[in-house]
Design a protein around this nucleic acid. Structure first.
Lengths: 142, 142, 142, 142
DNA sequence: GTGGTCTAGACCACA
DNA sequence: GTGGTCTAGACCACC
């Protein structure tokens, strides 16, 4: 793993959920943007090949291609024919320290929620609802 | 608010986001199930008419109808022709007390996240990522 | 053809040439951008349906769709599901007067070229070559 | 410049544009045929080596090789192993006199177009559109 | 009927 | 072997 040989993005754990209602290629797009935002992917990193992803998550290669192209249009990835797809730009995210701290706090909250009998769906419902309220409050306060 | 005059569910705040990638009728379905889960909608409550919703969020009435039908099939709503659509069943959710407590804790977390410079998208990214990790940890522990 | 009923873009004459070396969907993209640049398409105009174009030029609907999406990403078109695809933005081009004048001058030039025995390919070769020279001269002069 | 020592084709200015939509090897093919048609390359001229071209325009040598092969198949070039690639046949083009005249006329037109505010893309759009019209008129007249 | 997505498989261009 | 394009046909969401 030399500087000239971009590190492979082995952090990525692609997964498709058919129950989410979100169209498969957008699920990939979202997972990649999340990785970019959380610093799991850095500029120059090479993404897994289209064929690898397709085989791993059991979808059609064209669907993966579409996700990559979508992000390429947004300037986040660049595709170098014959060599692979690479990260072109990162997204602003929290510092590593802040992120670790926020993540710990969130895990505590999740434990509480679980103790209160919430399942994953319930946690997401409450989160979505509360974020929405939070953002509205911010908007009104300003 | 007599039993014959069911309270109107004026708590619902329907909203469609075209950027979410989720198809419109599923956004409505999700918002209603969330309301059911969080106790914002009770059995017997009357939902706004198809026409009202369609006008409010600027989509085709058929799209609203489809969302109502979807929930009717699941037994969560019942349509009483000529009188409206009503809640038929609630979903298990946290007690009012737990919910208030969790919501407060979450609002504190959101404040922290905001102080760390995260925008809404960043918060969602971190939440999604952490929930996933949390669930995996649970699965492995069991 | 009222203002509320956007005029149909009956000016467009889509055509695919297999000899050009240019990939089909890019040929469509080019033809549309040209039409936008020359004022043949105005904001609000509705483009022919995907199926119509596909039938007319004898290519796969998905290929047409790809061209439309390409232009949508660039913000030149907007797709309104169930209603069609519309022009969202025009491109800067010459005034109608200048355009007519330039076109006349160009037609005279083409006549000369024809008299000199050039075929279409020869005209394009000479044009491409001369434009390149012209642009380089401009660059050097500045 | 003896017959045994063929003049080197230093007139050629290879260039690859990734935005053109035309595949790289076809861009080379086109540039060479243009040069043949405009008399910039004469029978017996030696083309730059594959390696030189590859280095100059920063593409893979195989891509250059493919372009040369393509023209060899058409009988326009001949490869003499160990000695290089040579022009085997010229293409019919305008006489030197006509060409100079046409080029001057075209440069005047380009100046006008520039004065009218057109950029290179706009000139090409107008040219493509007008040539098409011109050819159709010819076809109908005959 | 509109556009949009997914699949499957073939073929091409590039390294 | 890499990504990129085209085709064909099925299915869905929306109007």
């Amino acid at each position: 793993m030399t500087p000239l040989q971009p590190r492979n993005a082995n952090v990525l754990a692609f997964h498709i959920e058919n129950t989410s209602g979100l169209t498969p290629y957008l699920q990939l797009v979202q997972q990649i943007t999340h990785a970019l935002r959380l610093g799991h992917l850095k500029v120059g990193d090479r993404l897994p090949t289209v064929r690898d992803v397709a085989a791993k998550v059991a979808i059609n290669p064209n669907t993966v291609l579409k996700a990559y192209r979508h992000l390429e249009v947004q300037g986040l990835l660049v595709s170098r024919p014959g060599r692979g797809v690479f990260v072109a730009k990162e997204l602003a995210g929290p510092s590593a320290h802040d992120q670790a701290s926020l993540r710990r706090a969130l895990l505590r909250w999740l434990s509480q929620a679980e103790d209160a009998g919430l399942d994953a769906e319930g946690m997401q419902a409450l989160f979505a609802n509360t974020v929405r309220q939070f953002i509205q409050d911010q908007a009104e306060a300003s």
